[in-house]
Design a protein around this nucleic acid. Sequence first.
DNA 1: CGCATTACCTAATACGCATTAACGAGCCGG
DNA 2: CCGGCTCGTTAATGCGTATTAGGTAATGCG
Lengths: 368, 368
Amino acid sequence: MTKEAAGRARPGRTPVPAGRRARPRQAEVARLAGVSQATVSLVLSGRATATGRPISEETRKKVLDAAHSLGYVPDPAASRLAAARNNLLGVYSFTATFPTDVRHSYYPFLVGVEQEAAAQGYDIVLFTGSSSGGAGAAGAGALNRVRLADGCLFLGRHVPVDELHRLVADGFPVVHVGRRDEVEGLAWVGADYVSAGREVVTALTGLGHRRILLVREDDDAPASTDRERGFLDGLTASGLPAGPNAVVRCGDPRREVTADRVRAWFADGVTAFVAEETDTGAAWRALRSAVAEAGLSCPGQVSLALLGSPPPDLADGPVPMGFDIPRPALGAEAVRLLASRIGGGAVGSTLVACTFRPGATAGAPATP
Amino acid sequence: MTKEAAGRARPGRTPVPAGRRARPRQAEVARLAGVSQATVSLVLSGRATATGRPISEETRKKVLDAAHSLGYVPDPAASRLAAARNNLLGVYSFTATFPTDVRHSYYPFLVGVEQEAAAQGYDIVLFTGSSSGGAGAAGAGALNRVRLADGCLFLGRHVPVDELHRLVADGFPVVHVGRRDEVEGLAWVGADYVSAGREVVTALTGLGHRRILLVREDDDAPASTDRERGFLDGLTASGLPAGPNAVVRCGDPRREVTADRVRAWFADGVTAFVAEETDTGAAWRALRSAVAEAGLSCPGQVSLALLGSPPPDLADGPVPMGFDIPRPALGAEAVRLLASRIGGGAVGSTLVACTFRPGATAGAPATP
DNA sequence: CGCATTACCTAATACGCATTAACGAGCCGG
DNA sequence: CCGGCTCGTTAATGCGTATTAGGTAATGCG
């Protein structure tokens, strides 16, 4: 089964494109230096000494001189092929990574991702759910495209679980940004919404509030569930009832959280409202404008808090009490975890703490 | 000299890393489909029919099914090494692509780049200039990593000209976003500041202004030079003198454009001021506050215009007359040009038109 | 002086994909 | 019924670099 037939056929492409080669290869450096290609590789990669394979100073110098005089630059394709590693780290988001409309993109995560990836020696490949690029087709196997990278980060609230599971099951290194437990074996880094939510509620009860309402959207993403969980924990911890009527869940906050309803809640004794942060910020927007429209002053009559950060277009308003999600840190942590997985590390998931933000929308409740 | 020694030594790395491979190869697809690796390549690359080497419909289907069920994706490094495309499009920026300081971000360009790249079937690889990792080390060979992709876009004011030139000279497809003439053979896409500047001036003279002053910074970037050129063209086209005293060039606008000077210019008959846009927006800031401080109303007494877009932190002020740089369009155009170069197209550079913005800072001059 | 070390290098792979010469199988025409 | 087709597929390369088993002097040791 060995190459006894060698020398018979000579396929492949033309050996040399007529004129002088554009780029020198290690083989040419080797010829000029009077050594073998392997030696050139050893010298240039610096691996020689590292692996206990000594190279004489004289040879090293000859090789370096030759390489320099020929202007040798390594071909990254060949390096990566030989090393069986592309040093490519995928980032998959289910919407365009750079959206035109919603400024609320994944940008803050990417700040951390880019930085940490660079630090770890990876370049980033951007995959978006919308794009049909690459060799893979769209639709069913859309996620498969990411396999060209050494590993991949996933961003987004709504993920095709089956496909993701398939990747994980195949042993492809994957890390999800955001908690996600329903996919078995999936590593993730998430923000600790439970603790952060609890802290916000505790701050409000500390101010004296006894009736607090959470306005959330009708979405079962873990991020929403955790926030509610933290909210309820906070109530319980403060000795308040954490019943279902402490939470308003609405499909369309704009329509369901009206000035009238806010007025009614206020009349009923509610002195503080808490909204969850989502992609669109719908809950917070609705709450904010309903309170204003109802003619209630904040924080004079009612206190408001936001479980997250306000959407950028509302940045000029008063800073809401709430917490900040350390998105760049999350992104960086995700990269670290992914790099570890690529290197064969275990599947540890991580929770990152959020930082409490006192803000200017909460005060002691009015005492009529 | 043939391989008669084969079978003796068996170096290379371990054939299979214990468990099942994460990434399927063509060979595995072939095994599953019951054909040879070559057939898989022929089918998947679509080159079969093109090269007059027909594949039966049955075989094609078997192969596609197998590839799909394995989640096969071609290895970009291997494709590239084998002198083929990998549908990766590099984006290299000389600073972080996602800076914490949003002001200098390339975000608006990337919106267009991402969209057009997706439309053309490319995935995007982000090569971060600051990265010291990857195959290439920092400094000398930093740009070399981009050779893994089919072509690369470059963004940034400060470019290592030598390295870039090397890429261009080697025939690697490169497009620079922003005009850049000092690198020979480099293709670029830029904004047409000359026409846009002329249009702004024409709008002002159309309103009746006869004495217009350009405030620019002391910087010889093409973007600045072109704006001045357009400004002067506009004056000439309106039959006004385009002498050097129509332009104020200052190293530190904050200090050189004062309320006193503005008052003096106004007394001298200047009814309209034009500032250039730069990274910092220094000229515009200085002009804006000097006019306000001088107690001159705008657009009542003096008209203002900005050759570009206002810095984000001034976004809430009145919209200045001027023009908008179509950054997403520029990004998209750059991708189109790059795709064409990858396909063997010529090195055409392109100017993209800016859109005039009437704004609210310009009106007819007062007639005392 | 003979054998074990050491110090340096080279030969011979493999990496995954694209390409092409060659081969086997049907199909005609003579 | 056989040479010459066409059609479909495979075997055997090459791309440029990394890796590792071996080989060969030079040196050490008893």
